[in-house]
Each structure stands twice: as structure tokens, then as C-alpha cells.
């Protein structure tokens, strides 16, 4: 009959272009969700409901800034420069530069996530704050993980595009 492995056919609308568009929208939504988790924590920190003396300071903002910068760096790179070193457009090979910048982006993003966990442990877990105050640190970790997820979604959906242009070239 057919060479398909599974019984269910692939839906007609799920071609690479729609998957790509949905992935990019999803990335924006995830980034916004992470951002608002953190904004929520800082609004809570300075509202009258926060009864403790712990507040969101610049230290708490730092991991989020690192993650967002890392996401910006990672996704600004043209992915086609990464793989191909064999034929280079511009004289010398460009791919080591792309890899270096990419490494810095990944380091920023991982540093952001690790920094948020550090803030959670050092600022909120070690002084043994109870739950509503602990949320200030937990929201920071959630925000940074969501920014990382958003970056992954953007990366994956941007690599779908290569397959699409390949099909187009055929």
C-alpha cells in the first residue's frame, strides 16, 4: 500500500510552513509568559500584600536580563553560517565567528538560569522564608526557564525553514 509507518495520516494543514509560523508565535507567547511571571513577582513584592522585608532588587533582575540578552544573541545569528565552513562567501571562513557568538549567547542564557536558581537559594531558601515570599524566587526561576523554552521553540521553528526552502529548491 503505502510506505507510511503509522496509520494516521499527517494532517493537511501541518506542513512545514504552518508549523514554523505556529512555533514562532508560540515562542513569543512563552517569552511574554516568562516576562510576566517576573513582573508579577515584582508587583507583588512592592504591593501591600507582601508582609515580609524581602523585596525584588536589582539582583533579582540580573538573571532575567542575562537570559533575554542570550536569547537575543542566539536567535540573531543566521543559522546557515554555522554548518558550512567548506565554501565561504566572504574570503575567510565565517563559521568560527558565528560559533563564538553562539557560545556567548548560550553562556549568557545558561548563566541566567543558573543565576536565578542561585538567587532563589541564597536569598530566599537559606533565610527560610515562608511561601508567599518564596514565590519571589520561584517566579524568577520559572521566568528564566520559560525564556529558555521560548528560545528553544524559536530555534527549532527557524530550522524548519531550511527544510522548506530545500523542498522549494527541488
Amino acid at each position: 500500500m503505502s510506505a507510511r509507518l503509522f496509520r494516521f495520516p499527517k494532517p493537511e494543514w501541518m506542513n512545514s510552513q504552518t508549523a514554523r509560523t505556529a512555533g514562532v508565535y508560540l515562542a513569543g507567547a512563552l517569552f511574554s509568559l516568562g516576562f510576566f511571571f517576573f513582573i508579577d513577582a515584582s508587583v507583588f513584592s512592592h504591593s501591600s500584600r507582601n508582609a515580609s522585608e524581602a523585596h525584588i532588587k536589582f539582583v533579582d533582575w540580573l538573571p532575567g536580563i542575562c537570559s533575554a540578552l542570550g536569547m537575543l544573541v542566539i536567535n540573531s545569528i543566521d543559522k546557515s553560517h554555522l554548518a558550512q565552513d567548506s565554501y565561504s562567501y566572504s574570503g575567510e571562513g565565517n563559521s568560527w565567528k558565528a560559533r563564538l557568538v553562539l557560545f556567548m549567547g548560550f553562556a549568557l542564557m545558561a548563566g541566567g538560569l543558573a543565576g536565578s536558581v542561585t538567587v532563589l537559594v541564597l536569598k530566599y531558601l537559606v533565610p527560610e522564608y515562608p511561601w508567599p515570599t518564596l514565590y519571589l524566587g520561584v517566579a524568577n526561576v520559572i521566568a528564566n526557564s520559560l525564556i529558555m523554552l521560548s528560545s528553544i521553540a524559536l530555534w527549532v521553528s527557524q530550522s524548519i525553514e531550511d527544510e522548506y526552502t530545500y523542498n522549494l529548491a527541488l
Binding site: V24, Y25, L26, A27, G28, A29, F31, S32
Partner: peptide, 9 residues
């Protein structure tokens, strides 16, 4: 598209 998704959420 990223900005639109951001604004919707």
C-alpha cells in the same frame, strides 16, 4: 510574529 505572540499573552 514574535512580537504579536508577545502582545497577545
Amino acid at each position: 510574529r514574535f512580537c504579536t505572540g508577545f502582545l497577545v499573552v
